[in-house]
Amino acid sequence: MNAIDSYITPDGRTIGAPVMEMKNITLRFGGVVAIKDISFDIREGEIRAIIGPNGAGKSSMLNVMNGFYHPQEGEVHFRGEKRGPMRPHQIAHQGIARTFQNIALFKGMSTLDNIMTGRLTHMKTGMFSQIKWWGAAQREEVENRELVEKIIDFLEIQTIRKTPVGRLPYGLQKRVELGRALAAEPKLLLLDEPMAGMNVEEKEDMSRFILDVNDEFGTTIALIEHDMGVVMDIADRVVVMDYGKKIGDGTPEEVRTNQDVIDAYLGVAHD
């Protein structure tokens, strides 16, 4: 698959060149090998899923992608360039946003303020114009507010705009967190179990949002998900991990029929 420059999905979208390439990544915590020699790529405009049983190293993989963990071996290439040692906040400025498995919102702030924090990488006025407020700072605030309001409309959370997020139910918090990541207008969006702990309706809503984000904004998405039905429906390509190793990579159809994957999920005697 790496040999070709682009491919066309069954529903007719053209998937472009790789946005992110992971090359022979190995990550160890002391003696424990969390990720062992994994390579794969994420291409422009696609929805890429990472699946695998618990403890397979999926979240660690996401943490490597956004610079939380630094792999001992291997290279991360983002938009054609090899990434040096960087702090997570620098990587955010490069255009990678993410959500967390267990929600990481700013509980004391309103929905609006939470999503506005997503715009921080785009807000440039200095401290002195902030103090003055009138002029540059206010103009920037209003411009960014307009974009954030579009996201609020898109996610259908207008009514909770000024509610502190700590008071919101779980499903809505997940949505606000997606909104905060979207507000950064990321080139690559990482979603860590966006549907964990949701009921069927909420999962349907969230799947629709993910597909719409990909469709309307053309955002490249990498997501971790446990719900096989959802993954098979929305992902263009799937990476399967087990015990820190990659055991499958390809379209949902290919992965579904891969014997290693079936073994990992249904269980065979490891020896």
Partner: peptide
């Protein structure tokens, strides 16, 4: 409110 998440968003 959450320094890790703050760092992730830049």
């Amino acid at each position: 409110d959450m320094d890790i998440a703050a760092e992730i968003i830049g």
